[in-house]
Design a protein around this nucleic acid. Structure first.
Lengths: 112, 112
DNA sequence: TCCCAGTACTTTGCATTACAAGGTATTATA
DNA sequence: TATAATACCTTGTAATGCAAAGTACTGGGA
């Protein structure tokens, strides 16, 4: 048991939420997402992100278009589907409820 | 993909944190913990909680003492070890950092 | 032309763990 | 003795983050 494992565990739950949110703001491709998450100190690696994007796409929350790049292979630019937008709104509340629940549970007041 | 699965995923990461926090406030046994979590709308079932308590105990964050009950089998009352207390403090920051990271990532402002 | 570096996307295998479901043990009551 | 209530424990499954390795496209230099 170490604090890194805990951090990783906590990240897990919010990854999809953050990724959908990032995509909702801008059409982006995988490396953009990695960079944005890294800027926010949410460390994620390729092996995590790609399968997750594929999953979200298969679930109908995302779609993408190929775009040629001048410096390498073509990129997949992702965007939210209508369903993805609705889902994101639900996730907003879900996250907020969790934050409230945690702050309730961890408040300093003793019960009893 | 459904919102329930997402909720469950988000819960995962904070369960240990919440449980340590609950135990830090009071010596409690499993049913107390379940009730407290339920009150905070963090749904957890026995099959989740017991293995988790055992894990935290094996990691040296918790200890317990048996106490006779007047209405059934004896109960395990859990308390935090010194190490558990230190760990809880680290988890406080970890959680706060995550909340900040998420709010940063999901803020409405477009980058670019 | 052939190789190499850089970029981007994909796949495989593993370890962790929440949960459902069922099991064991103790006590009180009928 | 049953039965019910309470409490703790175990097993099997599915999901999934991550490390590591693989595939594929582009452009520049020998």
């Amino acid at each position: 048991m170490n604090i890194e494992r805990v951090k990783s565990q906590m990240r897990k739950g919010v990854l999809e939420y953050c990724i959908l949110s990032i995509i909702s703001k801008d059409e982006v491709y995988a490396s953009d997402i990695l960079q944005t998450l890294k800027d926010a100190k949410l460390i994620v690696v390729e092996g995590t992100l790609y399968p997750l994007l594929t999953r979200l796409k298969n679930d109908g929350l995302l779609n993408y278009r190929w775009e040629e790049s001048t410096s390498g292979p073509p990129r997949k630019y992702y965007g939210l589907t209508e369903m993805g937008q609705k889902f994101l709104i639900e996730m907003d509340s879900t996250w907020q409820e969790l934050v409230d629940a945690v702050s309730h549970t961890t408040s300093k007041t003793k019960k009893k």
